[in-house]
Amino acid sequence: MSDLFRSSVQARLAKAPMLPPLPNEEEEDEASDSVPSLPTGYGPPAAPSRTPRASRKRPPNPAMAPISASGFFDQAMQVSVPDSDLDVRVYYTPPKFEDGTVIVCHHGAGFSGLSFACMAKEITDQSRGECGVLAFDVRGHGKTCHLKEPKTPETETLDIEMLTADLVNLVRVIFADVHAAPFLVLVGHSLGGSVCVRACPKLQDHRFQVTGVAVVDVVEEFTLDALPLMHSLLNARPEGFDSVEEAIEWHVQTNTIRNPNSARVSVPSIVVPAPERSPAYLPAYLWRISLRSTAPYWTSWFTGLSAKFLSSRTARLLILAGTERLDKELMIGQMQGKFQLVVIPGVGHLVHEDDPTRMAEVIIEFWRRNDRVVAGVKKVGEL
């Protein structure tokens, strides 16, 4: 990577920043959820704090108080997925009509399904219930846990093929009767985009109708070139926070999430209370998952993404933040009309959190253009 390109990468990253409960499930406040963040604006490096926890704690900022996800999804439930050995946390608002479409959302590494909360509400409102939204916590994140053998986030296997199988298995459990299943639009942010692209043909092999696949703010070549900088970015993050409100405030102040309302919903799900009897110098809240522990998987997550995206047998949409460049394969594919490209200005890496209204407009327009296309008319991305 040239010095010029490296400096441009560093500059960009520096700027970046309920289904009512199931039977026998006690209603809970989603503000107690927890997980961390990936590429974008982590602010200046933070020196480890050695001040006793009780001495440095400041009153929480009420303007950054957590918001429950119950106002954004109709349902929050745990779904048993035996083929993945997972008890998956799912957030779901079903379509209001029998022939509706469900937007299936896969978050990026370190985040949670609640990353899509504000966008989900916008989609259901703007589509007037024609589109439902399903988001979930990936293995090792949020409230998803193992059915048999408990694992810590550090020992969790986040292999790309396993994550892809998890998504396929979850869809097959939730929509067990494929003949009665709704049409699906797969939307994936960062790592989630790579998973959705790989899951698309597998779901089609199981006879699911996939209207389209949307990849959010990830380009293979750029991402692979930026991966060597990830450790520096992780070093720049604080090791934790003294309150959930402080965690929310940090994400907003560093422009990691530019929408305070979204941060108040999603950030509580990416931090957890420090273990009991932990050293007094540790913050009261720590990141749920150590992103550094996922480093062995980073390259495999994104290698081959462009080719797999362009070969998807469905409509294709690429949503980018700002004026992100395309790699060679995507440039050629765009010139050949193989996919729709939308650039959303004024947002960071977390496009769907920063501007959920515009994201919803883009997703709905993509869905309307490609859903149940009249015979003889090709979908966006079809030759």
Rank of each mutant, 00 (worst) to 15 (best):
S7G: 05
L13P: 04
M18P: 00
E25G: 03
E27V: 00
E30N: 04
S34V: 06
A46Q: 08
R56T: 02
R58G: 01
P59A: 15
A63W: 01
M64C: 01
D74A: 13
A76R: 02
S84H: 04
D87C: 07
V90W: 09
T93N: 06
P95K: 03
V104G: 12
G110N: 04
F111T: 14
G113E: 14
C118S: 15
V138H: 00
R139E: 08
L147A: 13
K148S: 04
K151T: 09
P153T: 05
E154T: 08
M162K: 12
V171Y: 05
F175K: 01
V178N: 06
G188D: 06
L191F: 07
S194I: 02
C200G: 07
G212F: 03
V213C: 15
A226S: 12
L229A: 05
A236T: 01
P238L: 03
E239V: 01
F241V: 02
I248V: 10
V252R: 04
Q253Y: 03
P260C: 12
S269N: 11
V271G: 00
V272P: 00
Y281M: 08
Y281D: 13
P283K: 11
L286T: 08
R288V: 00
L291S: 11
S293N: 12
A295C: 10
Y297G: 09
Y297E: 12
T299H: 15
T303C: 09
T303M: 10
D327N: 13
D327K: 02
G337Y: 02
Q340I: 05
L341T: 12
L350F: 07
D354F: 09
D355H: 00
A360R: 08
R369P: 01
N370W: 12
V373P: 08
V373R: 15
V374E: 14
V374Y: 06
V374F: 05
A375Q: 15
V380R: 09
E382W: 07
L383D: 15
